[in-house]
Every structure is written in C-alpha cells, then in structure tokens.
Amino acid sequence: MTSTVTPDGRTIGDVLLEVKNITLRFGGVEAIKNISFDVREGEIRAIIGPNGAGKSSMLNVINGFYHPQEGEIFFHGRKRNAMKPSQIARQGIARTFQNIALFKGMNTLDNIMTGCFTHMKTSLLEQAIWWGRAEREEYVYREKVEHIIDFLEIQAIRKTPVGALPYGLQKRVELARALAAEPKLLLLDEPMAGMNVEEKEDMCRFILDVNAEFGTTTVLIEHDMGVVMDISDRVVVLDYGRKIGDGVPDEVRSNQEVIDAYLGVAHD
C-alpha cells in the first residue's frame, strides 16, 4: 500500500490503471508512440498537449474504441485483453465526449437513467410485465439518479428534452450520465471546452466535488492551463503522439520540452 495524502486532505491509493508502451497506428500514421503512464486511485490526472497530440486517441484506447497495435493496459493490476467498449463499461470505466454525445430523443432524466444500464439486472420478460422486480428496480435507480441530479444542480431540467438545453447544461447532463454508472474511473474529454468563465468554474467545482465525495478517479483532457494546473494532481503532456512530460503541475510547468511544445521553438 503506497497511499499518500494530498495537501487538501484526499487519500490517493494504489495504481488503478496503468498503460504500458502503447503504440497506436492508423495505416502509416502513428497517433500514439510508445506511451506509458499510470493513474492512481482517487487522483485527478490530466492529459494535456497541443492539437493532434493523441490525447483523445489515448482515451479511446482506454475505453476500448481503438485497439493499440502494441502495448498493454492493466486495470486493477490485471492485464486487460482486447474487449468491446460495452464490456469495458461493465468493468467500471465511464466517459464523456468532447462534442456532446447525449441521446437527443430523450429527456434529461432518461439520459441519466441510461447511465445505470450496466447495474440494472431485470430480464426482458420481467420488463415486459413490469410487475415486482422490474418496477422496484426502476425506482431504486430513479432515487440514485435523483441524488446525482441534486448533486449537479439540474433539478429544474429533469423532464426537459436534452436537445433543448444550452451547451453548458448539456455538458453537465453528460457528466451526470457518466456518474450514474458509478464508475471507478471517469474519463472526461475536454469537459470545459467552449464554456464561459462562470460555467468553467461550476464544472471545476463539480469535478472536484465528485472526486472528493465519491472518491472517483478522474482522467481529464483539457486545454485551459489554469484549470489543469489548479485541479489536477498529476499531469501527462503529449506532443505528436509522444510523452514529453509527466509529474505534478509545478514540475510540468517548468519542463523545458513542455514549454517548447506550447510556445514553439526556433528551428535552426
């Protein structure tokens, strides 16, 4: 056990997820080149890097959309074989998307309820009769979802079709849907992209609260450096598919290679 306590009093435990020497190619393009890093239980881990650095590809590898040509992924210390995304979701990995991927034909409540899918167990026949177990199960999860709705302060839009919601709220509903899966590992792909300062502050607060309240390990991709340096425990920096930095925010900030990648460097 190598648990440490952060300055703000959260406990960070063992390694939850470890990616080792991942290489991902699309034809001749190497999107990710030999990248390794780990995520420890309870921490907020940021992945940053300029456009096209391979950040989103990395998340897609972690939740099973892409299968890397080389490298291994360890989750809970066990090597993970190639799986379908739905199987990986069952292991307790949830995510949000850079461009919102909500179910437009449903209302907020149903969207979040869909997040409970892996936990709900009643069979097709029980669902068809809607008597006893199926009905009870629905209300048990409805109550859990209501807690999340309270937590993220979206009570007022419970029955609103998600297509009619403003952007910031849609992002929040997407976070709620991911939380409804009670994930062990939460992947957030640019949770604050396109938001104004106030919305960003709200979202930061929610991410920190989720981490503090539920102890959810979070991996987030973000472009806003202020946000990243403020809320994350450790940061991985990618550039052109390579890892160029890894460490606590202060280390990363003073890393010459990282500064070069962001500011550009004179080629002579």
Partner: peptide, 25 residues
C-alpha cells in the same frame, strides 16, 4: 412497459448515439 424501462432506454440510446450507448455498457 418495454419502452419505458431499461431495455427501452437501451434501444433509444442505440438509435440516438450508438457509440455513446456502447460506452455506458
């Protein structure tokens, strides 16, 4: 009954956004 419960939501999820449906299981 089928369309208001777990199964129905999984159908609608597939209809609306199939990859998002996959990542929630």
């Amino acid at each position: 009954n089928l369309t208001r419960g777990r199964i129905g939501r999984s159908w609608m999820a597939i209809r609306d956004m199939d990859f998002a449906a996959e990542i929630i299981g």
